[in-house]
Structure formats: C-alpha cells, structure tokens
C-alpha cells in the first residue's frame, strides 16, 4: 500500500490549481459534475467546489428507475455538505422509450446506453449553464477499460485520471467525503446487484498494486510474477489494459494527406491559452 500512498495536501493543491487554471483560461468560471453517489464523482465534486467555490459548481443527479435509492441519497448528502446546487434529471423516460424499440438489447447495451445518455444530458446542461463537464474517471478504471467509451469517460477535463482507485479513496477521506460513500462497495449501479469488484473478479486494492508496478514502475510480467502476483492475474490485467487501449485514444484517422490531424498537425490543446 505504501507505494500508492499520496500526500493529500499536495495532491489537492495540484489538482485544484489544475481545475482553476484549465477552466478559467478557456473563459469559463463554472463546472458541472455528474454525481452518482459514488466516491469518484463525489471526490470530483469536492475538488471542483474547492477550486471554483461551491456557487460555481452544479451536481447533476441522473437516476434510472432501477438505480438504488441510496445512490441519489448519497449524491444529495455530498452536495448538501458542499453547498453546491443540484439538478435531478431522471433518465428513465428516454431510456425506456429507446429500448421499447430494441426489446432484445442485453444488459451491457442497456448499461452503455445509460452511461451515454448521462453524458448527453451533462453536455446539454453544460451548454445551458456555461459550465465545463468535469470528469470522474480514475486511473484504475481507465487502464482496465472498465468504462463506457463516450459515456462516463466523456468530459472537458479530468481531475482524477491520474489517481488509482485506492488513491481516490485516500483523497476522499482527506477532503471529508461522507464516510458512507467511501465505505460502500463501488458500483456503476447499471443493473441491480452490480458491484465493480464482483464483476471484475478482483479487488481495487489488489489491482492497484499490480497496475502501479506495471504502469508507473514499468515492471515486466516476469518481475511481477516473481514478486508474488498470480500469473493468471497478471496475464488478465495486461490483457485488459492492452485490449482497452482504443478507449484511451482519439479515433484513428486514415492518413492520406501530408499533414493529418494529430499525426503531423500537432498543436497543444492549450494553444494560445
């Protein structure tokens, strides 16, 4: 665990500075966060409120009819503690209207559709509120690809994308996120009884230790096995990281010209800012 330990004061200072800087230099003052009642989106809201002030943050709560009631309760609890505004937008009507025409859709398609519906709502509300969408994906789920492409990953800027799940928990504890949110089993709440760790088949504690060594320390498969990680576990995680690489990059462009976007036309995103 010690290698994953972070200095929370320093992390807060860097990340809140990042939020303030990258939001204001694009001419915005406000942020909008989709709040699920989980630790990631709650931490995102806490950091954004600290960076911009609570008056400049809106939490959007987007339940579906099967969402657990405590998801919404926890989001509201966190929002009340921060003093940020919330909007509750029930996505049941549009999800059900769509799947009425696709009755055969399996639960993965339904889950992805919900994640993308929430993204579409967030982007619409961000336009109305002149706010930027603040990301809530952590490094663990992004590396594992345990996320919906153009769904929960979608955002303007992401304060959590370089923090492993266990580091998200440390920072959440430090910033005073309600204990009940930190303690509950992580879940995308996309179907009843779903938990991340149940679905993945390993705990975040275990996989973060492995990912830190694999990604941050660039250790080889053999070195990891020698350190005591089960060979099947190592193989599976490496496969997940490799198999989801496409989710972490922009779509490929067929190169036909002499200067193609992002290949040899390379400008910084913060161009002129």
């Amino acid at each position: 665990m010690s290698e994953l330990k972070i200095d929370c004061a320093l992390a807060t200072s860097i990340i809140t500075g990042f939020l303030r800087n990258e939001i204001t230099k694009f001419g915005f003052e406000r942020g909008i966060v989709g709040m699920s009642g989980g630790v990631d989106s709650t931490l995102s809201a806490f950091l954004t409120a600290k960076a911009l002030g609570p008056d400049n943050v809106t939490g959007v709560i987007m339940p579906y009819k099967t969402s657990k009631p405590d998801s919404r309760e926890h989001a509201e609890l966190a929002a009340a503690q921060l003093g940020i505004r919330t909007e509750v937008i029930d996505i049941t009507p549009q999800i059900d209207a769509y799947f009425a025409r696709m009755p055969d859709a399996d639960k993965l398609r339904r889950a992805n559709k919900m994640a993308r519906e929430r993204m579409a709502v967030l982007y619409d509300r961000s336009q109305a509120l002149r706010a930027l969408v603040i990301g809530t994906s952590n490094k663990t789920e992004a590396l594992l690809g345990y996320t919906t492409l153009w769904g929960d990953m979608a955002c303007a800027i992401n304060p959590l994308g370089d923090l492993y799940k266990t580091q998200v928990r440390q920072l959440a504890r430090y910033l005073g996120v309600p204990q009940v949110i930190i303690d509950k089993p992580p879940s995308a709440d996309l179907w009843q009884g779903q938990t991340d760790e149940g679905e993945l088949g390993f705990t975040y504690e275990e996989v973060d230790k492995l990912l830190f060594r694999l990604v941050d320390e660039r250790k080889s498969r053999d070195e990891l096995i020698e350190e005591g990680f089960a060979p099947e576990f190592v193989a599976r995680v490496i496969q997940m990281v490799q198999g989801s690489q496409y989710k972490r990059r922009m779509p490929l462009i067929a190169k036909v010209s002499t200067r193609s976007i992002n290949r040899d036309f390379r400008y910084p995103r913060d161009w002129g800012r």
Partner: peptide, 8 residues
C-alpha cells in the same frame, strides 16, 4: 510529478 511526499 510524484506526490508521495509533501514535496513534489
């Protein structure tokens, strides 16, 4: 980069 300690 590196936030394991109170100093970067």
């Amino acid at each position: 980069r590196g936030i394991h300690d109170q100093h970067i």
